[in-house]
Structures are given as structure tokens and as C-alpha cells.
């Protein structure tokens, strides 16, 4: 793609989300969403690969009805109440439908099915954008709507956690696994949204922090399926040693960053007496933990089953770890001691 065009789309990508984030008006927010969608589609189809083209088409077809429904509901709301403010929506049906549409946009259960499908057609960096930045705008809108319909939110959240866990169990493609991981994390955010929006925001931030290096590592080594993971050890041994920690951090194991949101969310729920919900979310977190564990097992604990002639290619062609990766790996593993600070910043 022409660099000028690319930079234009990237700018549009940024500005679309920023327009949504800064608008209090449904029309503006919708416009931001549309700009966002329009900007990402050429980026998705950048390679003109059949899978990429397919993914771009699918992505467009998914986002278009979702945005249309949002606009439809916003207009309905405007007609019924006479105002366009986002956080003053008071009519129930439009809110629920908007929630579903936003969930569809973000790829949450039960309307999650497009996300693994589309993500499978992308290269990993675009996938990273799709699973982090693209979710910011709808996520912000949901955050604005949080005050009503707790049941819908909790149902969406719980279903996402469960579906994300179960869906990822049977996958061999890293991109699909990461898509399901994204679904699960979104679920965690939505489950707690009703009770503590700050916690949701924090979870989102930490999810982005944690998923960033994973995508980057996989991109750097071009490991699209589980089979290729053991090669990490020969290419980048350091990363190979670190990736289990990263993945388990995503899964939410204690000494790592990923534990913070899970800990605080479950603590919050227990404080509110929602023991059943806390138990369900905590237990269904185990499913995703299982596939993270499997990834780590294959990537660094075992050797590649196929005999490779070059055991230490990193000696011949030293791969320096990119700076961005270096800076993201550290916070995605070691933020737990800073929990009080994060707490005071976000909560």
C-alpha cells in the first residue's frame, strides 16, 4: 500500500476512535465508528491475499449492520426522548439493542463468531489492532451505557468468558486462540462493568498491555499455528523463556500482571455478595488458562517433535528483540507489585 494512503487510513483509524471517545452525541459517535470501520478495511485487505480480502469483506459486513442498528436505535431514542446524548439514554429497548450491536462490533458472545473467523485472515499486527484498538470505541460506548441493564451486561460477560474458554480449547491456530482470549477478556470486563466501571477500564488497559507483546512475539516469529511455536526456542531463546510467563499472565496467574484484574474483579464481586457469579467467572477462567498453558507447554517446555537440523539459528542470525517488545514485555509480566498505584490511578 502506498505509504501516503496508509498514513491516511491510520490517521482515520485514530481519529475515528477519538471522535467516538470525545463525542457525547450519538450521531458523532456513530460517525466515529463508521470512520473507524472504513479506515481499517483497506488496512485489513492490505496484502490482497484471498484470506485478507475475505476477512475485509466479512469485517465490513459485520460492522455495517451493527453500526446501522446503533444509528437506528439512536434515532429511535432521539425521536422518543428528543435528545442525542449518549449517557442520558433512557429508553430501554434501544439501549438493549445498542448493547447487542456494540457487543457484535467487539465480538462478544453470543455474537462473537465472526471474530476468530476474521482474525484468522489477518496478519498478526492487523490482528493486534483489531483486537485492541478497534474495540476501544465500542467499549467506550458500552462504558457510557453501563448504568442500566445489568442483567444483559452480566449475561453477555459470562457467556463471553465461557464461550471464550470453551472455544479456545479446541484450536490449533494461534490467531484463533488469541481471538478467543480476547473474547474472554472482554467478558471479564463486561461482567464487572455494572459494579465498577473503573475496574473495567483497568482490565481493558491491562488486557491491551498483556496482549500486545504476545501478538508482537508471534508476529516477529511468524508463528501462526501451534506447530510452529517450538521453533521459538531456536530463533529467540529469551522470548521462548518469557512467553509462558506472558501467556500465564494473560491467563491470570498470581505473580504476574494478569492476576490484578482477576483478583480485583473477584474481590469486588465477593464484597458485593455475588458469590455465584464470582465462582462461575473464576472457574470458567480455568478453561482459558488451559489453552494458555498448552501454548506455553508447546512453546517452551517441550522440544519440537520434528527434527530440525539447525538447533540454534539465533547464533547465526542474531535476532534483536525490538524495542517495543522489550518495553511491553516487562509491564505485561511485572505490574502486580504496582497494584496499589494502578488502583489509585484508575479507581
Amino acid at each position: 500500500m502506498n505509504p501516503i494512503t496508509l498514513s491516511m487510513f491510520t490517521t482515520a483509524l485514530l481519529s475515528g476512535t477519538l471522535i467516538t471517545l470525545s463525542s457525547t452525541n450519538w450521531l458523532m459517535a456513530w460517525m466515529g465508528l463508521e470512520i473507524n470501520t472504513m479506515a481499517i478495511i483497506p488496512i485489513i485487505a492490505r496484502k490482497h491475499h484471498p484470506r485478507a480480502t475475505e476477512a475485509a469483506t466479512k469485517y465490513f459486513l459485520i460492522q455495517a449492520p451493527a453500526a446501522a442498528t446503533i444509528l437506528f436505535c439512536a434515532i429511535t431514542n432521539a425521536w422518543m426522548t428528543g435528545q442525542w446524548e449518549i449517557n442520558q439514554m433512557s429508553t430501554d429497548l434501544p439501549i438493549i439493542l445498542i448493547l447487542i450491536s456494540l457487543a457484535f462490533k467487539m465480538g462478544m458472545a453470543p455474537v462473537h463468531s465472526w471474530l476468530p473467523d476474521v482474525l484468522q485472515g489477518l496478519d498478526l499486527m492487523t490482528g493486534l489492532v483489531l483486537s485492541t484498538w478497534q474495540k476501544l470505541a465500542p467499549f467506550y460506548l458500552i462504558l457510557q451505557l453501563h448504568s442500566t441493564h445489568s442483567l444483559t451486561l452480566i449475561l453477555l460477560g459470562t457467556m463471553s468468558i465461557l464461550v471464550g474458554g470453551w472455544g479456545g480449547l479446541n484450536q490449533t491456530q494461534t490467531r484463533k486462540i488469541l481471538a478467543y482470549s480476547s473474547i474472554t477478556h472482554m467478558g471479564w470486563m463486561l461482567v464487572i462493568l455494572q459494579f465498577s466501571p473503573e475496574l473495567t477500564l483497568m482490565t481493558f488497559t491491562l488486557y491491551v498491555t498483556m496482549t500486545l507483546p504476545v501478538f508482537m512475539i508471534l508476529h516477529q516469529n511468524n508463528t501462526l499455528s501451534i506447530n510452529k511455536l517450538p521453533i521459538l526456542a531456536t530463533h529467540t531463546p529469551t522470548i521462548s523463556a518469557l512467553i509462558p510467563l506472558l501467556l500465564l499472565s494473560l491467563g491470570g496467574l498470581p505473580p504476574l500482571t494478569g492476576f490484578i484484574p482477576k483478583w480485583l474483579i473477584i474481590q469486588k464481586m465477593s464484597h458485593l455478595g455475588l458469590f455465584g457469579l464470582a465462582t462461575i467467572t473464576a472457574l470458567s477462567g480455568l478453561f482459558s488458562l488451559y489453552f494458555y498453558l498448552r501454548l506455553s507447554y508447546i512453546s517452551s517446555i517441550t522440544m519440537s517433535p520434528s527434527s530440525n537440523l539447525t538447533t540454534a539459528t539465533w547464533r547465526l542470525t542474531p535476532n534483536s528483540i525490538p524495542l517495543g517488545l522489550k518495553t511491553t514485555i516487562v509491564p505485561s509480566m511485572m505490574l502486580l507489585p504496582l497494584t496499589p498505584m494502578i488502583n489509585s490511578l484508575l479507581l
Binding site: E54, T57, K58, L61, I62, P65, A66, I100, S101, F104, P110, V111, S113, W114, P116, D117, V163, W166, G167, L169, N170, Q171
Partner: peptide, 22 residues
């Protein structure tokens, strides 16, 4: 897991159908 992945046939109409049904 298998049951949940039955929807992953790569067909856009299934994705849209899930949205409509929801």
C-alpha cells in the same frame, strides 16, 4: 468446545444470523 465451534464455518450468513437472532 466442539459444539461452540460448529458456528465457525467461515460463512458470513451464520455470523449475521447470530446477530439477527440475538
Amino acid at each position: 468446545s466442539k459444539y461452540i465451534n460448529t458456528i465457525q464455518l467461515g460463512l458470513i450468513k451464520l455470523h449475521l444470523m447470530s446477530f439477527t437472532i440475538a
